[in-house]
Amino acid sequence: MTEKILSEKNLVVRHSLLELIEHWAIAISGLLLLFTGIFELPVAKRYYIITVPGLGWSADFITSLYIHYAAALVFTAVGIFHLAYHGFRGEKGMIPQTGDLAASVKVMKSLFGFGQEPPMHKYLPEQRWAYVGMAFIILMLIISGLIKTYKNIYAPDMSLAIVLTATWIHNIFFVLFFLAFLAHMAAIALRPNWPMVRGIFTGKVRLDYARHRHALWIADIKKRKTSNH
């Protein structure tokens, strides 16, 4: 287990290197996909995006497609890896649990100064919901994207019903992906969540913060440590 309390440094290890790599691979390729996806719409010329220094290529749909494919390669491989690897290992920390809905409401309220936050696990209840939502969006983008890619290369004349379905799933989930990304950024902007931000860069968060906010998680780590010995 990577999770470890480093008392003398007042830190807890929250994410393994592997998890950091997964997160940032999805984040960076996802952003590239988002932008090149937008450039696959005829907007770059119309909205003068081509006049922005460094974005002269944005109106060339084929150039965007190269980048879109390159990013999709990372996005798809890492997305599937994530599902398979953590799934096989039976890691359930980010899967919503019973009572998460009620707990989310409590946390939300407390963020706006109403009432006390309940003691929490490693992930907040709403974080778990957000995770499942994002995972679903990503999966739909991957599946529809693969169908579209197959059509581009091998079967331009494949069934119109399939092409239309894949296209509209891709378009609708592209919008949802963008909204989910904005929500993700909004969550980071909330002050109580700030101490968690360093975790996704360095893998570690402050121990005093974790003790205070993620009491159940710290208790878990301690329990595991004693049972291991």
């Binding site: 390669l73 890492v78 693969l146 890619t149 290369i153």
Partner: peptide, 14 residues
């Protein structure tokens, strides 16, 4: 060619 590697990405991930 790049598109074909995208099609193989799920296998790579697995």
């Amino acid at each position: 060619p790049l598109g074909k590697t995208v099609l193989s990405a799920p296998v790579l991930g697995l």
